[in-house]
């Protein structure tokens, strides 16, 4: 069973960059979130994972309006990041080891079912660097970065995201290496806008309930209009979370959720899924 772990976690530059700005009465919540991310790191390590696939929703680090693939995988030998000012993000510039041979095999298999672009040059922004900061702080696990366009509509439909997750799973299952997957995105949030800090907690909880229970029909029923109205443009990032659920195939366990850290500009979520046989 080469897919050995599948989980989700939030990303946002504030999680590292504005950690010091958390109000004193919310520091315990922040620290509980960080503690849960540490346990996720341990769970990935104890799964025996030899490589980590990060299904992310990048923010114009590699792709722009001149060329915006719906799906892309980084197959380079190394990646760089963060693109952001290191002081602002509070994560130093890194060279991150890739897994070129394995990633190329995965792309080759996934192309049977998904129109997946690939790139040998990958720059990571906070969407990947913040998760890595907690999950592989020593940068000692090879990373295969993967992007679903969640920023610039038109966006890939959710049913195709599900297919993408399943195709990723099938491709992983044909490998000999132990592979972990994390999907990283926000649920409802309005990042980098005047409404930054707003979170629709009820919407998040309903989404998470559907995600943890693998309720495919309801998960795929969201329209982009509904997501935008209820969950902001940050809500488009549910694609990464749905992909991780589809890849896992089993029920999820929500390990952490809090909407009480608005300075992070995202609800803070950590969860893992059972890997279906």
């Amino acid at each position: 069973m080469p897919l050995v772990y599948s989980g989700i976690l939030s990303h946002a530059p504030g999680i590292t960059g504005r950690s010091h700005m958390v109000e004193p009465d919310k520091e315990a919540t922040r620290d509980a979130f960080y503690g849960c991310l540490k346990r996720q790191r341990e769970a990935i390590r104890s799964s025996g994972a030899e490589v980590l696939v990060v299904v992310a929703a990048e923010h114009f680090a590699n792709f722009f309006m001149d060329n915006m693939p719906a799906y892309c995988m980084g197959i380079g030998a190394k990646h760089t990041g963060p693109i952001e000012d290191a002081q602002w993000l509070k994560i130093d510039k890194q060279i991150i080891q890739g897994a070129p041979e394995l990633a190329t095999r995965i792309v080759d298999l996934m192309l049977k079912n998904v129109d997946l672009a690939y790139s040998e040059e990958w720059q990571c922004d906070h969407g990947i660097m913040v998760p890595l900061n907690f999950l592989t702080p020593n940068y000692d696990l090879p990373i295969i970065p993967c992007n679903i366009n969640c920023q610039g509509p038109p966006l890939t439909p959710l049913n195709r995201v599900w297919n993408f997750g399943e195709a990723l799973r099938e491709a992983c299952d044909e490998q000999t290496e132990n592979i972990a997957i994390v999907g990283t995105g926000g649920i409802s949030h309005w990042p980098a806008t005047p409404d930054s800090g707003k979170i629709n907690e009820a919407w998040d909880k309903q989404f998470l309930e559907r995600l943890m229970s693998q309720n495919k029909e309801q998960l795929l029923s969201y329209s982009d209009d509904e997501v935008y109205a209820e969950a902001g443009q940050g809500g488009f990032e549910i694609r990464t979370l749905i992909a991780a659920a589809a890849a896992a195939g089993g029920r999820g366990t929500l390990q952490f959720y809090s909407a009480e850290l608005p300075i992070f500009a995202v609800g803070c979520t950590v969860a893992s899924f059972e890997i279906s046989s």
């Binding site: 530059p13 923010h59 114009f60 693109i83 952001e84 922004d125 920023q151 610039g152 990042p191 980098a192 806008t193 930054s196 443009q233």
Partner: peptide, 8 residues
């Protein structure tokens, strides 16, 4: 300008 560009 998208906030993810503007923020950076």
């Amino acid at each position: 300008v998208n906030g993810q560009i503007l923020m950076h």
